[in-house]
């Protein structure tokens, strides 16, 4: 997992509420056995018609989309399936951060595990960011802040452990493997 400390870059706004994981990556792309190339399928049904032709009105097809590391999305982003392909597709597309006023539980866990920073802001702050399509935001994970070009500072909270793992690019499996003695002891005391 790639470490994340701070970045500055343009925001891409998708203001629709309840963007589910079937929108982020449709089910027909889940038959691969690796996550390579998932970015090509991010929001596939929003970006392409049934013949695979790019839809000109889709903001995700504008050249700026691939150059935007920050996705600002409507409330309750990532609801639905547990498919990790969703945050992987967003990373592959070029996003490193997703900001909303609510992010679904499994998506948020998956995002943290693969190095996509999920940020939940207060609704009023989120509302302001929804109006900043294309503006350069700074996301600072050390300070837990989102900063706007006008100098506004929006603080966010992230689970301390998730923050530590993202800052260090640390894989949680190493942490879990280091608990083997406790796991063994638990197993010994809970024989079925």
């Amino acid at each position: 997992m790639e470490a994340f400390t701070q970045l500055t870059g343009p925001a891409l706004v998708l203001s629709q509420v309840n963007i589910d994981t079937d929108q982020i990556i449709p089910g027909r792309f889940l038959t691969a056995t690796s996550f390579e190339g998932m970015g090509d399928y991010a929001f596939a049904d929003w970006r392409f018609d049934a013949q695979g032709e790019p839809l000109p009105d889709c903001v995700l097809n504008e050249p700026r989309a691939a150059a935007s590391p920050i996705l600002v999305a409507g409330r309750n982003f990532g609801c639905g399936s547990s498919r990790e392909h969703a945050p992987r597709a967003l990373l592959g597309f070029g996003f490193r951060v997703v900001i909303s006023s609510e992010i679904a539980d499994i998506f948020r866990n998956n995002a943290q595990n693969v190095g996509l920073l999920p940020i939940v802001l207060e609704p009023a702050q989120h509302e302001q960011l929804l109006a900043m399509d294309g503006e350069a935001l700074t996301v600072d994970l050390e300070a837990c802040e989102v900063r706007t070009p006008a100098g506004q500072v929006f603080s966010f909270q992230l689970d301390g452990f998730a923050r530590y793992c993202l800052l260090k690019g640390m894989d949680r499996l190493d942490f879990l493997l280091a608990q083997q003695d406790q796991i063994k002891s638990y197993e010994d005391n809970h024989e079925r």
Partner: peptide
């Protein structure tokens, strides 16, 4: 759970 977590559970 997601696939990374599937790996965690398989391993630990």
């Amino acid at each position: 759970i997601g696939t990374t977590e599937v790996g965690y559970v398989l391993a630990t």
